[in-house]
């Protein structure tokens, strides 16, 4: 009897352990043979996670000055920047630096005399303007490799924040000597070596060199600093409701614990005559 029980216990423990392992492994696999990512600390992780306004604002600067020339952010609207500490006039000013297609004017024209599409100044209600008019244009101007939209990059890669940071800081002129590469590895022309990109050859040239932006708050713009800031910005861009979600979560779960406690007390009371 004792043996049977302990075997049963062991088996069920193994089963649940294996289940956890199984679900975890699906995530790891999707990395597609990339090396392990160095783990970073992020203010937005954990139960009390929140965005560091300064970090995210610096990240916006890096995105607008560096990334935005190739990468869109099509699901984020300029008005959303209100969430990370910009006031209405600042948001309007940022939007006003960009132009969006204006569509037919009162005379039904869609293009001006020189054949260019009619444009208007972007408004806070517009979404971030993509650098290329369509995917074919993006491919044609980038040697066939379409720079992906960054709106959801943080959620579209396993361990998104660590991945973006590692990728941005993982460029080398030459593969490092001690780097474990497949024997038939050969660098292709026009690609750059990156320690963390799956396959280690990436079409994106190193985007950050340090001092690519002059931070409004005077922070020194090292590569690591810029990579960190833009990662935080992209995390916000992908999950703008993260703070709301985590704040609400604490309240909901505390409430549920109280409610469940009351249900349990009622259950004990009602069942008292049965035990």
């Amino acid at each position: 009897m004792m043996v049977a029980t302990s075997v049963k216990r062991w088996l069920s423990a193994a089963a649940f352990g294996a289940l956890a392992l199984g679900t975890a492994s699906t995530g790891v696999m999707a990395a597609g043979g990339a090396v392990d990512l160095p783990e970073q600390e992020w203010s937005f992780e954990g139960i009390f996670g929140h965005f560091d306004r300064g970090e995210v604002q610096r990240g916006l600067q890096v995105y607008l000055n560096v990334c935005a020339s190739c990468h869109g952010l099509q699901y984020v609207a300029y008005r959303d920047l209100g969430d990370i500490g910009y006031d209405e006039d600042q948001v309007k000013a940022i939007a006003a630096q960009y132009e969006v297609p204006a569509g037919p004017n009162q005379d039904g024209e869609t293009h001006d005399a020189d054949g260019y599409p009619l444009m208007r100044t972007a408004l806070p209600s517009d979404r971030f303007v993509s650098p290329f008019p369509n995917e074919n244009a993006a491919a044609a101007m980038n040697g066939g490799a379409v720079p992906p939209d960054l709106s959801l990059m943080y959620k579209a890669r396993p361990n998104g924040a660590d991945y973006i940071y590692a990728l941005l800081t993982g460029y080398y002129d030459e593969p490092p000597e001690d780097f474990d590469l497949p024997e038939d590895f050969e660098m292709m022309a026009g690609l750059s070596f990156n320690a963390y990109f799956p396959g280690h050859q990436i079409a994106m040239a190193p985007p950050l060199y340090g001092d690519d932006v002059e931070y409004a708050d005077g922070t020194e713009a090292t590569i690591e600093q810029e990579a960190r800031d833009v990662t935080a910005f992209l995390a916000w861009a992908a999950e703008p409701n993260l703070e709301r979600r985590k704040n609400m979560g604490i309240k909901v779960i505390l409430f549920l614990i109280v409610m469940t406690g009351l249900f349990y007390a009622s259950k004990r009371k009602i069942w008292r005559d049965q035990h």
């Binding site: 979560g249 909901v252 469940t260 249900f263 349990y264 009622s266 259950k267 069942w271």
Partner: peptide
């Protein structure tokens, strides 16, 4: 009442 208690526990894990 027993089902309600079970639902409470479920909700905590689910949420």
């Amino acid at each position: 009442v027993k089902d309600l208690f079970g639902m409470g526990v479920f909700f905590i894990i689910f949420f």
